[in-house]
């Protein structure tokens, strides 16, 4: 469980997060939704210690993010940020291999190679494992970075807008894989916490939803409870119809 207590965050005089008290359960895949500027990415960055906490505390399965050495948190939590550009020319296999660095901090051992193989297989990257990153499409690069986070072998995997710049095919494929790794099985059940804008991907693949609005937690619960016409219309301040498709909510926000 990730516990967030009394977290405030200001940038200049703008209050980005206001008194956030939130427990994120080990539910499988949890999605953070909300309008632009609601503080979703800031909250994710604070949990992942990418930005220093201003007030309050955050703990991951009992480990305080502010007090635990960063090398130790790296074994409990991995974050995949949005990749705007990739400066390094690494082979896909080497990149995913760096996900194992917190565990060996030197030479990779046999169990590290095995974890890399699993990550490459889970994200369908085996056929490009020897290609350089700059020879891949944007969607393939994104997949490689998510696979690196997965190879880190942490209980928690944080994804910041993983579907950005992906077309329908790659977005669905990535969500399917992320959903897959959040289920126990050969790959081990991982807890996924992700910021997602495309609400129907949340409807289809998330187990738990946290809705932020103007820096506060507006709603949280199972997708069927949150993704209702009334709740979403209030959250996004627009008229949103919700229908149903194969037992899952289908949000009609575009018409």
């Amino acid at each position: 469980m990730i516990s967030i207590r009394d977290v405030n965050h200001n940038i200049g005089s703008a209050r980005i997060l206001k008194d956030i008290n939130l427990d994120i359960p080990r539910a499988g895949a949890t999605a953070i939704i909300g309008p632009n500027g609601a503080g979703k990415s800031t909250l994710l960055n604070l949990v992942a210690r990418l930005q220093p906490l201003q007030t309050g505390s955050i703990s991951i399965d009992g480990q305080d993010v502010g007090k635990t050495p960063t090398a130790q948190i790296a074994k409990a939590l991995a974050i995949v940020s949005q990749q705007n550009f990739v400066a390094s020319r690494l082979r896909v296999r080497d990149l995913v291999g760096f996900g194992r660095w917190p565990h060996h901090r030197g030479r990779m051992g046999p169990e590290d190679h095995e974890a890399v193989d699993q990550a490459l297989a889970a994200f369908d990257l085996l056929s490009f494992q020897s290609r350089f990153l700059d020879e891949l499409s944007g969607g393939q690069q994104q997949r490689a970075f998510v696979a690196m986070g997965f190879a880190q072998g942490t209980d928690w995997l944080l994804l910041d807008e993983p579907l950005n710049n992906l077309d329908m095919f790659h977005a669905r494929a990535l969500m399917k894989r992320v959903h897959g790794v959040s289920r126990s099985g050969a790959a081990g059940g991982r807890q996924v916490l992700m910021v997602v804008h495309e609400i129907n991907y949340v409807a289809a693949w998330a187990d738990h939803v946290v809705a932020l609005r103007e820096g506060e937690v507006a709603l949280q619960g199972a997708p069927e409870e949150i993704l209702t016409s009334a709740a979403l219309s209030g959250l996004y301040e627009m008229d949103i119809q919700v229908s149903e498709h194969q037992g899952r909510p289908l949000v009609l926000h575009h018409v």
């Binding site: 992942a48 210690r49 990418l50 050495p69 960063t70 090398a71 130790q72 948190i73 790296a74 074994k75 939590l77 991995a78 974050i79 995949v80 940020s81 400066a87 390094s88 690494l90 990149l95 760096f98 996900g99 660095w101 917190p102 901090r105 030197g106 970075f145 690196m148 986070g149 880190q152």
Partner: peptide, 20 residues
Amino acid sequence: ADQFTIAGLGKSAGVSLGLN
């Protein structure tokens, strides 16, 4: 060498991997 390569991946990747 590994630390420099990770630093080249950017700050967020470095933090995520627990790089000092």
